[in-house]
Write a protein that binds this DNA or RNA. Sequence first.
DNA 1: CAGCATCCTATAAGATACTG
DNA 2: CAGTATCTTATAGGATGCTG
Lengths: 123, 123
Amino acid sequence: MKRDCSKIPYDCPIEATLGLIGGKWKALILDHLTGGALRFGALQKMMPKITPKMLTQQLRELENDGLILRHVYPVVPPKVEYELTDFGQTVLPILDAMCAWGRVYLDNVREQEGTKAAGCACE
Amino acid sequence: MKRDCSKIPYDCPIEATLGLIGGKWKALILDHLTGGALRFGALQKMMPKITPKMLTQQLRELENDGLILRHVYPVVPPKVEYELTDFGQTVLPILDAMCAWGRVYLDNVREQEGTKAAGCACE
DNA sequence: CAGCATCCTATAAGATACTG
DNA sequence: CAGTATCTTATAGGATGCTG
């Protein structure tokens, strides 16, 4: 039973956006893919806290909704790459805005607490 | 037991942003408040599908995180207004980006399906 | 009017083990 | 390597009724 987020009826643009790229992982995944195609394992390394199950699930939904493409290379051992579609590229402004705001916010928090950045693709 | 989303440790700016304004309702609430202060009941009317419990809960979290202000007027019947703080105003670029993208997306979907816009604050 | 309390369901998310 | 399968837990979200 697969889920196409694009099949859900939305009342409002923001609601639709959240439906397609909302949730805990999708924006993060898309952001990592802005640098170019990545393998399953590479994505997992970039998000150490995601489980293979969740990563698979989120990638399938993004694929069903036309945001990313899945390339299977018929080799042994298996090699699968994911990359943004043209449509997927159009979410970049949102990711940039979220990243910029989060960065300012984290800088303030860290300044107060004396902690350091953890190092992430988008910072 | 109240939740301060700002107390959660985040590894990455996008993650932090999602922590503070992610979820099904917060971006929508903030967006409605960009037009100025609103009463509880007004917000509820703008989001017919939200329950009072959820609305209260989301408003409290936004307040704890410094994004909105809650004004209680000591009158009968009670009057409570919510408005963006200066910090809350800074999320506007994100909301705009989400709204713009969602609008283009919905327009395409609707063109294919022949349906119409439902009418929402941000469209 | 603006909520709170209580109870309940659905969905998201995680742990662990296994496989083509 | 890139997943699946199964089981379990946590969180989001909802229905209903009540109150200062």
